[in-house]
């Protein structure tokens, strides 16, 4: 894994880059990694830099170059965190949607919840269609 500050990137030899990756597996792997990363970094009582987990798109379903998840903090509220999913389109525009907002527990619970996968998948497919 390569790290740029709080951003983690899968290397070029990632298995996701071979053939087509499964969309469910890709999302699951990304949010699992984000969860592990966020557990240590997210905080309700101090400032932290945005936490990001991204990957070059290897799935067939998404018309995108890359996808990423970001957790960031309100500028005026330590315990206001926003989890977003973003996508880099072939046109090199970036589009994003919110997934959850709340304190650190709410964000971590969302990442751990198996049902979240469906929400994220729906958002990603709609974003892909929007961008196409």
């Amino acid at each position: 894994m390569i790290k740029f500050g709080n951003t983690t990137i899968l290397p070029l030899n990632s298995p996701f880059r071979k053939n087509y990756a499964d969309l469910n597996e890709t999302i699951k792997s990304l949010i699992d990694d984000l969860y592990k990363n966020a557990q240590h970094k997210i905080s309700d009582d101090r400032f932290y830099q945005a936490i990001t987990q991204g990957i070059v798109n290897g799935t067939k379903e998404l018309n995108a170059k890359g996808l990423a998840f970001t957790i960031s903090q309100d500028s005026d509220k330590f315990n206001g965190h926003l989890l977003e999913v973003s996508m880099l389109l072939p046109s090199m525009k970036e589009i994003k949607r919110p997934l959850a907002y709340g304190n650190s527990k709410k964000i971590l619970d969302f990442l751990k919840d198996k049902e979240s996968l469906k929400v994220i998948k729906k958002d990603l497919l709609e974003m892909s269609a929007d961008g196409g």
Partner: peptide
């Protein structure tokens, strides 16, 4: 962010587009 919070409260989401810059693409491993 305010718009995104409103989207979460309505459950009706639309995509928000910006231009990627060289800095933004790092997070996608590019």
């Amino acid at each position: 962010r305010e718009i995104e919070k409103m989207q979460l409260a309505t459950g009706e989401k639309f995509s928000i587009t910006t231009c990627a810059s060289d800095k933004d693409i790092l997070k996608y491993g590019m």
